[in-house]
Computed example of a mutant assay.
Amino acid sequence: MDGLVAWWESLGAWQVPLRVLLIIVGAIVIRLILQFVINRAVRGIVTGVKKKQGIDDTQALVATPLAAVRVVQRTRTLGGVLSGVVTTAIVIVAVLLVISTTFPNAAGAFSLITAAIGAGLGFGAQNIVKDVLNGLFMVIEDQLGVGDVVDLGPATGVVESVGIRITDIRDVNGTLWHVRNGEIVRIGNISQGWARAIIDLAVPYESDIDEVEALILTTALELADEPKWKRLILEKPEVWGIESISAEAIVIRLVVKTRTSAKDDVARELRARLKRTLDTAGIRLPALNSIVLTGFEGAGSIRGARPPKTSPLPVVEQPRPARAPKTPKSPKGAS
């Protein structure tokens, strides 16, 4: 021990740079250790959920109970937020230690400067504190998670990341919105619980309403009974009746309660089948104004079409007809 002290005193002017180097290396090591612990905890929880559900791919959780999906999303989001908090805290502490080591006599003056800066930036820093606290509470209370389709007011789309200050939202057009957590005053989350596919079908005014409603309901029930769609539909489809009447058409509403991630897929398949059913019945749909997707309707389509997976059909290769052998050409000049 005495030899180590003597060696340290013999460094002389090199003591300060060495201390600064040790502080930087220590901060990096501590950050790596804490990051490893956070990543391991997140990985352990996610792997446990997957193993409990008997799956390997996170995307397969879409067809599992909602609680499993929310645990995975919430854990990953919390892991990202904690990583940001740990990094920020370690950097601040390391900077303060480096300053106090480099300028040991400036501790009192540094305290006064810190107090003056704190008083001057108090009103500006409150927005940063508001962003951080609001982001933490949003994640802790499970208001949103990575992968959720949400409407935050300023932007609507899929949550790509939740930071300590900023939440990134990707809308249906591919635009990435950076929304400050402190500016989020309400959250509409359509990835929690269940969703409802609503189809408003306009039929000619002179159509037999009872017949049309029976055709619509029969088509929807046939879809709900098929194995590859049954797991995505939570309740039997319902015809709610006439939604509106005009001089050209009568609008009939069909609703289907689905899993949150399957609303658009079910709605698209239903529209296609209803169109074929009405064509077969000789009911021609009237021409109406085009519909522009906005809000949740547009956000829900951001992932594109994701029809249920089915087993591949066997491919039977047809044998190729045998080619006739080529006749050798006779050399020129031969008789």
Rank of each mutant, 00 (worst) to 15 (best):
D131C: 11
D57K: 15
I99H: 03
V139R: 04
V150P: 05
T64P: 01
V172Q: 06
G304Q: 10
I99V: 13
V172Y: 09
A197P: 01
D279R: 11
R268P: 00
K228H: 15
G80L: 13
I166W: 08
G135T: 07
A281K: 12
T277P: 08
A155V: 04
S100F: 02
T156A: 14
I28A: 15
A272L: 12
D2N: 13
A272Q: 11
T87I: 10
L278C: 05
F36P: 05
S246W: 09
E297Y: 00
E222W: 02
A13H: 08
S246P: 10
T47W: 13
V62G: 08
V85A: 15
A41M: 14
L78Y: 03
T327G: 11
V72C: 09
A125N: 13
I169K: 06
K332C: 06
F296P: 01
T294F: 12
Q73D: 03
G193S: 10
A119W: 12
I291Y: 13
E211D: 14
E183H: 10
K50N: 06
K326H: 11
S290P: 10
R231T: 06
L221I: 06
P328S: 10
W14D: 06
K309Y: 07
I99F: 03
V203C: 10
A107I: 05
D210Q: 07
W194S: 07
R40I: 00
E317K: 10
L217R: 04
D2I: 11
P17I: 00
P204C: 09
G174D: 05
Y205Q: 10
G163C: 12
D265N: 03
A94T: 00
V172N: 08
P104D: 03
T114L: 15
L136R: 06
V179Q: 12
T258W: 01
T167F: 11
G120P: 07
F296C: 00
P65K: 03
